[in-house]
């Protein structure tokens, strides 16, 4: 049952992403991209990941604001999208080869609905699930993993976020300094 529902939402995601890539108007492309993020959030909610669903929704709203800031009030929003024919054919051929390799790789995965930690009893997830509440005191195992077992990852994430915001501010600031001269 849940496979069908998730599959339907994934088909919606495929359609929205095709619209986002192929439409001429930049603003509607950005809005279609927002639809992709919203559908992702619904899928996360369905497969038992409420933390990710909330985060995805917040991040999607923020990225939509950032992208609309980039695209609004730009005069030339439509560009005729034809690159040279040979390049397109070469790209599609490479994508097709990539597609074949991907299908071959996906055949080796376990069936949808049987995660790896069920099949392999030495997976770290088993330890987190069994001892998470006792060792960290967090009822939510995701936050136990995120903030306790792998806390350095989260520290690195905060560093990356801070650095990227610093970089974005530095890139946007140069123009203002030049103009003042």
């Amino acid at each position: 049952m849940i496979e069908i529902v998730v599959g339907l939402f994934l088909i919606f995601i495929v359609m929205a992403s095709i619209i986002a890539i192929e439409t001429k108007d930049l603003l509607s492309a950005v809005v279609a991209f927002g639809a992709v993020g919203a559908f992702c959030s619904i899928i996360y909610l369905l497969v038992g990941a409420p933390d990710i669903a909330i985060t995805q929704l917040v991040v999607e709203v923020l990225s939509l604001v950032i992208l609309i800031r980039a695209t609004i009030r730009r005069d030339l929003t439509t560009i005729d999208e034809d690159r040279d024919f040979f390049g397109l054919v070469a790209t599609l051929a490479i994508l097709f080869i990539f597609f074949l390799f991907g299908i071959e790789a996906l055949r080796w995965l376990p069936e949808f609905g049987t995660p790896a930690f069920v099949l392999n009893s030495s997976a770290p997830t088993n330890r987190y699930l069994l001892n998470g509440l006792r060792e960290t005191g967090a009822a939510n195992i995701v936050s136990a993993v995120l903030l306790d077992y792998r806390g350095y990852d989260t520290l690195g994430e905060a560093t990356v976020l801070f650095t990227s915001i610093l970089g974005a501010l530095a890139i946007l600031r140069i123009y203002a300094r030049k103009r003042r001269k």
């Binding site: 923020l62 980039a70 997830t125 987190y128 995701v142 993993v145 792998r150 990852d153 976020l161 890139i171």
Partner: peptide, 28 residues
Amino acid sequence: SVDPLPQAFVLTSIVIGLGILSLMVAVA
């Protein structure tokens, strides 16, 4: 329960994606 480990990693990845996006939009 479902697997919490990929969820924790994806949570990190989503937030980093926002940083990447803001940097790319700044360059654009």
